[in-house]
Structures are given as C-alpha cells and as structure tokens.
C-alpha cells in the first residue's frame, strides 16, 4: 500500500493496520533525513499548515513545528490565549477565517473530545488531531509504537503495560487502539479510581499490582497524573500513589526481566518514575521525542499528498 486510507488523522480508531505500517516505513526515511547535516527536504514547499492550539503544549507543538519546517511547509501558529476565541468567536468561524488565507492543513489541539472530528465535517482542510481532551492523541501513540518497533524489532506479540491515570489520558486510549491493531497484548495498571469502568471492553486486561504488571511486560509506558484534570480526589496523597504505582530503580532491578521504560512527557520526576529510572539505560524517553519529529513528518507528508 502506498496511500493512507484516510484524509485526516483524527484518531487511531479510524486507521487500518496497513496505514500504521505505511506511516512507519515513511518515518524510517524521514528519520534518515533528520540525521543528515542538512535536515530539510522540499516536499511540502507549496503547503501551508496552521497549528491551532486551544490548550497548552510545549513538546507536541514544537515537534509539529519542526516537522513542518523540515518538510519546507509554510507555518502559521495560533494559540487560543492570544485570539478572538476570547471575544466569543466559534471554532468553525475561527478555523474558516484561517482557511480563507489559503491554509491547506490544520494541526489542532483542543480541550473538548471530538473537536477535530467536528471540524473535519465542516471545513475543507486536512485535519490532524494533536490531542482532543481525554479522547485521542494519535501522533503520540504512533511515535510510541514506532519506538517500541525500533527497540524490540516488532510490536506484534509484545506485552505492554500502561501505568497511571488511564481515565484522563488521551495518550492511553490512542496507545490501546494502536497496540491492539498491531497485535500487541495490553494491560493497564493504576488505582481503580483512575481506570475507566468498562476498559476491558477494549480488549485490555486490568492489573492493580504494579510488580506483577512489570514482571509480565516487555514495555512499561508510564503516564503522568494529570493534576489539571483531577476534579475530585482520586487517591489519598501523591506520596501514597508513588508508593503503589511509582517505579524506582530498586523495583526495576528486582524484576525477573529487563523491561523498556517509556514516558510521553512531561515527567513528574519522583512521582510516576524516579530520576534514576528516567535516565537509565532501559529508558527510551528521549528516543521517543526524536522519533516524534520523524513520525509527524511522515503523517504530514502522506496526508499532504492527498490534497489536490
């Protein structure tokens, strides 16, 4: 297959397994490009991309912007805090105004789940979801799977545990969809209060004992506690959370197997993982960030080729 089955990247849920493989193969080529002395290719020189962020972001936004610039696209940035959204403009109006300035592709982060899907039904441009509330964050899941593939050779058949705040995490949901699609075995681990009630219906197992989960897995993806989204008290104290669900070097070294540690960032050092774990040989956290640029270049290249 040499073409994506979708026009937008709204979520992993809408992708096929072949789409993911095509993105990975294309990302392999871009990874080679970004390791050259001149890291830029002219592919998207006639494409204009708007990065519209209604929610804070450092890493994702920077990663998208770098990917766009390395593809030679023209880039406009827009963040809600400095915009007319505050003056009462609707989402469709905001985006249509930007599009009338001849923008071909929109990268959007929004606090409401489904914002990207809604937008894709009302505007012409190609939409990339850079995170919509607690729903999906597809490029993060793609770069996570890509990093597993790079480290372990394949995603299929691997055991992956996602640890932490599953309830509020778009990274967890997109990761579950992506990993299941590629044939990995997935468990989630965390306090019961932070695990969605019907999570098993997605084909994942629940484990509340961290040591058991880690002894089962090849890869542990450690998520941050999303304090900004915790409307009520889900666990007694951060200290207690860390004692039960935090990974430290002693725990890591006492396991029966050598596992790979991942984290989508930003890390709360000393909460979900300690510094010596984050900086250990087993951690591929910075590799994930590097792969993020290659994955986003691949996604934008493949989507742009469908714009006529």
């Amino acid at each position: 297959m040499s073409e994506l089955s979708v026009k937008h990247l709204l979520g992993i849920k809408y992708l096929k397994e072949e789409d993911i493989q095509l993105i990975f193969e294309t990302a392999d080529n871009f990874k080679e490009v970004i390791n050259r002395s001149i890291k830029k290719v002219p592919s998207l020189r006639d494409i204009t991309i708007a990065n519209i962020f209604f929610e804070n972001s450092t890493r994702t936004r920077l990663s998208f912007e770098l990917a766009e610039k390395r593809l030679s696209a023209d880039v406009v940035n827009f963040s809600a805090s400095q915009s007319s959204v505050k003056k009462g403009e609707t989402l469709i109006d905001t985006v249509n105004n930007i599009l009338s300035m001849k923008v071909d592709m929109v990268v959007m982060r929004h606090p409401n789940p489904g914002a990207g899907i809604f937008l894709s039904k009302h505007v012409e441009a190609s939409i990339i979801n850079a995170g919509d509330g607690a729903h999906e964050h597809p490029t993060q899941a793609l770069l996570d799977s890509y990093s597993i593939r790079e480290k372990l050779g394949d995603v299929s058949g691997k055991n992956v545990v996602i640890v932490g705040d599953i309830l509020h995490s778009r990274v967890a949901l997109s990761n579950i969809f992506a990993l299941k699609l590629q044939g990995a075995n997935v468990k989630v681990c965390g306090p019961r209060t932070l695990l969605p009630k019907y999570i098993e219906s997605l084909g994942v197992a629940v484990e509340t004992d961290l040591r058991k989960a880690l002894n089962w897995c090849d890869v542990a993806n450690m998520l941050r506690i999303q304090n900004e989204r915790l409307d009520i008290s889900y666990f007694p104290t951060t200290r207690e959370y860390t004692q039960q669900f935090g990974v430290n070097k002693a725990l890591l070294d006492s396991l029966d197997r050598e596992i790979v540690i991942m984290h989508p960032g930003p890390i709360n050092r000393g909460v979900e993982i300690t510094s010596d774990v984050a900086d250990s040989k087993q951690s591929i956290i910075l590799g994930q960030v590097e792969n993020g640029v290659a994955i986003r270049m691949a996604v934008m290249y493949l989507l742009a080729s469908k714009i006529k």
């Binding site: 294309t26 080529n29 592919s43 290249y301 080729s305």
Partner: peptide, 22 residues
C-alpha cells in the same frame, strides 16, 4: 540516494509517492 522528497511532481499525480532507503 532516494529523491522522492525532492521531486517536483508531488501532489500532481494520483498516487502518493513512496520513498526508498537512502
């Protein structure tokens, strides 16, 4: 050397241009 990303017919054909290894 793979020249896919440098081609001048990107988006002019029907098909996505798929790259090879450099």
């Amino acid at each position: 050397l793979d020249i896919t990303f440098y081609r001048d017919d990107f988006r002019r054909g029907d098909k996505t241009l798929s790259a090879n290894q450099t």
